[in-house]
């Protein structure tokens, strides 16, 4: 409640939407580049390159996206913590986000290395897409619940 009054974020009407744009740009980079790798894992297009090549090309941009997303996100949260704190969809979003990030840097990364079976690649890619889309759905739904 105090944060809601004193947080400088709330002093200007433009800061919140600007941060939101950063947030969206951030996940366009991170989720976008991860999805490209997932599409490759699923065998959809980009067959001239190995999965590993696609993944290493895009890894820095995934990281840039995550950095943008994870700085703007908490700032958005700080503008009205109560509203997020009391919202079960927000909890769900955070759990999905944590799972998605951990999954990305463990199982997903391993699946981009040579010697991964086609079936495994497809399962990993599907889980990855589902997790990230879940995070985005969480972000929208927390404003509607």
């Amino acid at each position: 409640m105090f944060l809601a009054i004193e947080n400088p974020l709330n002093s200007s009407e433009l800061i919140f939407p600007t941060l939101e744009c950063m947030h969206i740009l951030g996940f366009a980079f991170s989720v976008g580049t991860i999805a490209i790798v997932d599409f490759r894992l699923l065998g959809l297009g980009m067959r001239h390159q190995t999965v590993g090549e696609v993944a290493s090309d895009l890894a820095p941009w995934t990281l840039i996206g995550l950095a943008l997303m994870l700085t703007s996100g908490p700032l958005l949260f700080s503008s009205d913590p109560d509203m997020y704190y009391l919202n079960w969809v927000f909890d769900l979003k955070m759990v999905l986000l944590l799972l998605a990030i951990v999954f990305h840097y463990t199982i997903h990364r391993r699946a981009t290395m040579p010697g991964t079976s086609a079936l495994r690649s497809k399962v990993v890619a599907s889980i990855s897409i589902a997790l990230w889309v879940g995070v985005i759905f969480g972000g929208i739904f927390l404003a509607f619940i």
Binding site: A28, A35, I140, F141
Partner: peptide
């Protein structure tokens, strides 16, 4: 509708993430 509207909005945003990412990468 309580559900369809936000679902469509979330699909809109998911497309921004997935395909917007590709637009960004092509431009860059």
């Amino acid at each position: 509708s309580v559900w369809v509207y936000p679902v469509v909005m979330a699909i809109h945003l998911s497309c921004i993430a997935v395909f917007g990412g590709m637009i960004l990468m092509t431009d860059l």
